[in-house]
Nucleic acid binder design. Sequence first.
DNA 1: AGCACGATGCTCT
DNA 2: GAGCATCGTGCTT
Length: 195
Amino acid sequence: MRRILPRSFYDRPTLRVAHELIGARLVRILDGQRLAGLITETEAYVGETDLGSHARAGRTLRTQVMYGPPGHAYVYFTYGNHWMLNVVCEEENMPAAVLVRAIQPVEGVDVILKRRSGRDTFGPGKLAQALGITGKENGIDLTGRNGQLWIEQGLPVPERLVTKGPRVGLYSVPEPWKSKPWRFLVKGWKLEVGE
DNA sequence: AGCACGATGCTCT
DNA sequence: GAGCATCGTGCTT
């Protein structure tokens, strides 16, 4: 059985966690079945001073999970349709999280494709839909198996295969936050899937 | 294959 | 009441 990423993995600088989550295996137990995908894209949101982060508004009902201990899920709803999965990083009271933006399905692929009506899983709303992740998963601990959602050690992805760039969708966020290269993604969008 | 736009509802001011 | 860490459709090239 693969190692579940421990709390100490998340209790580190957010950029580092965002980078190292590339290639990790996101596991979801849905209706008793195991679904999984390798993470191919992430974004870092770092502290209240990051004006691209929800935490810019300080501690609110929505953002309180980001202020909690690392290794928990921060799931929020946006644009009237979509749930977004984030993982909380850094020490307690430091509001930071990594948005998981895309996965490459590797287990339960047929179920995932069916849930997506054959469409892709590259996009934060799409992967949440594919894995049945909603507000019910907000706040759960990702470092154990109780919440039916966790992250396992995956493929080591060489530095040269990871592209950095500005985060997506921050239209009205002021500089320099708008252009910070805090998005990480697999070059060419595909990982070599091995066992 | 690329762009424009409308859907849709929750969160914060 | 405005704005939103998006997605899918439908129309144009």
